[in-house]
């Protein structure tokens, strides 16, 4: 009988092992593996599973935070922010709270709701709890200015933080290279074509100057020869058109040039910049 009992117990132990259960820890570790392998869709499923079965809410901060990150990496910014706010409810300490809040700012930068990102930065700045985090706050504020195409303020803000020396130098370079649209327009009013030359479009600028000189000559000549009607028609239909076109071109070329400068800077930030990005 004892032999039977021993065999029976052995069988039970075997059965127990075969009836392997999957615990929350295991699912959580699986989710982390999926996350590390950048399989964000499945990672979200598993994190959500952990969230659902974790009745004690032990994993809630981590799972919501990771779901937020997965959605962020997948470009689902609305969902991402929703889960970051959920994670905030289970924040365990001061650093957790700050990390989540900066993540929300970063997602706002990415989805280009810059006003909201500024608002959140200012809230963090005013919060006495985060007084020691001024450098980080200024760093993300600088990024807000970049996405707002305000490189001047970006440069000034990055200058206040030790975190973004490279990005500060980049902002400074962009600021130096960018052209003034108003200046281009003003010099075009004074000397047609000069605004286009200022924007680097030399041939266009010289052609514009030539057209304006010719049209201006015919207009003035008509008036001098007392052919007022011809003068008005040529002036109105030809000269004014060239003159106006010259100012508009100066403005457009300068804007295009600035766009090309900022696009190159953004490309550098996207592909080569090694610091923290939104």
């Amino acid at each position: 009988m004892r032999i039977i009992l021993t065999k029976f117990l052995f069988l039970i132990i075997l059965l127990e092992n075969n009836f392997a259960q999957t615990s929350i820890e295991e699912v959580y570790s699986l989710a982390n593996k999926l996350f590390e392998n950048k399989n964000y869709f499945d990672a979200i499923t598993e994190y959500k599973r952990v969230n659902y079965f974790d009745t004690k809410k032990e994993y809630s901060f981590d799972t919501n935070y990771k779901i937020g990150l997965c959605y962020k990496y997948g470009g689902f910014y609305e969902n991402s922010i929703q889960y970051f706010y959920d994670a905030l409810k289970y924040s365990k300490n001061f650093d957790n709270t700050f990390e989540i809040k900066t993540q929300i700012i970063r997602v706002n930068i990415l989805r280009k709701t810059i006003d909201r990102a500024f608002q959140l930065c200012n809230e963090l700045e005013k919060d006495v709890l985060f007084q020691s985090k001024t450098d980080e706050i200024n760093y993300w504020k600088g990024w807000c200015y970049i996405f707002n195409d305000d490189w001047n303020n970006a440069e000034l803000t990055f200058a206040k933080t030790y975190l973004g020396k490279d990005i500060y130098l980049l902002a400074k370079k962009v600021n130096k290279e960018k052209l003034s649209v108003t200046f281009a327009k003003v010099i075009s009013y004074i000397l047609p074509g000069s605004g286009q030359i200022y924007a680097g479009k030399y041939i266009s600028g010289l052609l514009s100057l030539a057209w304006n000189l010719v049209a201006g000559y015919f207009t003035i000549n008509s008036f001098l020869e007392q052919r007022a009607f011809d003068g008005i028609i040529v002036g109105e239909l030809v000269w004014l058109r060239f003159y106006k076109g010259n100012v508009e071109n100066s403005e457009n070329f300068t804007i295009d040039k600035n766009l090309s400068i900022t696009n190159n800077a953004m490309k550098f930030l996207q592909e080569e910049y090694r610091g923290l990005k939104p």
Binding site: L15, E16, F19, Q21, T22, S23, E26, V27, F53
Partner: peptide, 9 residues
């Protein structure tokens, strides 16, 4: 065993 089955996520 029954409890384990229920605990299996």
């Amino acid at each position: 065993l029954l409890a384990q089955v229920n605990n299996d996520i």
